[in-house]
Write a protein that binds this DNA or RNA. Structure first.
Length: 201
DNA sequence: CGGAAGATTTCT
DNA sequence: GAAATCTTCCGA
């Protein structure tokens, strides 16, 4: 069942935790792909030196962050990869949740074809990888997750899991903000991204 | 208009 | 550990 708008109207940290274990669904011309969200990170706009919208900055790229929760914020990084975020909270509050890793659930052959690999654990274990495998690109920027093309739904089988918090990854430039424990993973899930060296110190 | 850096991935 | 690779941003 598709998650309602209200689900997304929470602060970025609460939403990041709530999204774990949910299922990301993307309908494309080639087929449907689904994956269970197993790793997320929070980016808290105003107070977060690592966020694109730090200090309330607005530009062409992060405008969508200022919309109400439930929209897709897609951005390109290093000129070669896309990363997908989910906008949280109310309008004018630039908080987002970055999806870092998914566990393949449906449309796996299509993912393998897009990723050019048959290693299941390599399909969705990273922000750039999951966008490539799910077929998410600039045309998905700003999509309403309450629409029919790209959305998040409740898993059919609810399984119990523990949430683990750790430091965010690859944001060394962000000063103190890099030490915030705003990365959340499902404990003992083998599909989280490879770079899991950072632990709570 | 040009330089620099980046919420990454992949290979050695 | 380092390169690949190119879009976007910021300064001049």
């Amino acid at each position: 069942m598709k998650l309602p708008r209200e689900f997304y109207k929470e602060d970025g940290i609460s939403l990041a935790k709530k999204l774990l274990g949910k299922v990301l669904v993307h309908h494309t011309a080639e087929g449907v792909t689904k994956g269970i969200i197993v790793e997320t990170e929070s980016y808290m706009g105003i107070v977060d030196a690592a966020a694109h919208s730090y200090k309330g900055k607005k530009d062409g790229r992060c405008n969508i962050q200022y919309k109400e929760g439930g929209y897709a914020y897609i951005y390109m990084i290093y000129g070669m990869y896309y990363c997908m975020n989910i906008v949280a909270n109310e309008e004018e509050v630039p908080e987002v949740v970055l999806l870092r890793a998914l566990e393949p659930l449906e449309g796996i052959p299509l993912m393998e074809q897009r990723r050019k690999t048959a290693k299941r654990k390599a399909l969705l274990s990273g922000p750039g990888k999951l966008c490539q495998a799910m077929g998410i690109g600039k045309e998905s920027y700003g999509l309403d997750l309450c629409g029919d093309q790209l959305y998040v739904e409740e898993p059919e089988e609810k399984t119990a899991f523990e949430i683990e918090a750790s430091k965010r990854i690859n944001i060394d430039y962000a000063g103190e903000a890099k030490d915030y424990l705003w990365r959340f993973t499902i404990k003992n899930n083998s599909y989280v991204s490879v770079k899991v060296k950072q632990e709570i110190s």
